[in-house]
Amino acid sequence: MDFGPYLLLATLEGAVGAAVLALTALGLSLVFGVMRIVNVAHGAFFMLGAIVAWWVADTLAAGPALNFLAALVISPLAVGAVAVLAERLVLRRLNYNPESTIVATIGLLYVIEQVALMTYGPDARPVVAPLDFRVQLPWFGYSGYKLLVIGASIVVMLAVWWGLTRTRIGLMMRATQFDSETARAFAIPVDRVYGGVFAFGAMLAAIGAVLVVPIQQAHYLMGNDPLLLSFIVVIIGGLGSLRGTVLAAVIIGLSDGIISVFFSPTLAKIIATLIVAMILVIRPKGLFGTQSA
């Protein structure tokens, strides 16, 4: 293959990664923006979404398309329920203290991961893609499902943007983010907004995970890489800035895809993590951020 088509292939792979990453990171960014807490268990929610998707497909066994659609509905709901439970039982009692919640969500990460290991086991299992056609380009054929993932991610992100800017619930969320004290004074149920945002963030991760299971298998440790990358994206995009998050996800997803096609993936990861650390050192607010961590 010539360099041109090879680059195109790398870009496409990067775009798929960016699409899933943008959804996951958006969830993390919403939780950070509104609640001012860092959810270390976000990757565990991602993993849980993938495992529930596998479980739904395995139990239903009604053909690839139906299985997948059912998973796409049930998995985010199940993960959202777990998140609400965690928020009620743990985070609320900690009064959303930033450092305590980090420790608590590290604990939550271990609990979810180990429960997954005990029930689902250490194997990696795939879910069959809902559609099976290849887009034939002049140089190579490309999986139609992967293009669908990119499309689905864009649709979900547009829906989130619409929900945040055009609906009453979105207004409540933005008000809470802006100033939770004043929001409470205006009779906005801040506690319920927090619970909802935490669950919604986890659901976005689960949607990303359901989209990714047909490409990458479900495994109990699969949440670690998305967690790290989401962190990177949220930091570079500016903590709490949604527009920055999406932009950073596209940049990082694409470059991660392209770099790991051309260079050693370990070296690429080392360089990426060091760059992120340095960005935070030099600009603690992130590249597009307005609030400091």
């Binding site: 860092v38 935070l280 050192v281 961590a293």
Partner: peptide, 25 residues
């Protein structure tokens, strides 16, 4: 020298990132 330029959550994440780079190394 680098990480202590940040505080709070940023400090946690910066140390985490440096440690991750060392782990990958």
């Amino acid at each position: 020298c680098l990480a202590l330029r940040t505080t709070g959550v940023s400090f946690m994440i910066v140390t985490l990132m440096f440690a991750q780079a060392a782990f990958l190394a």
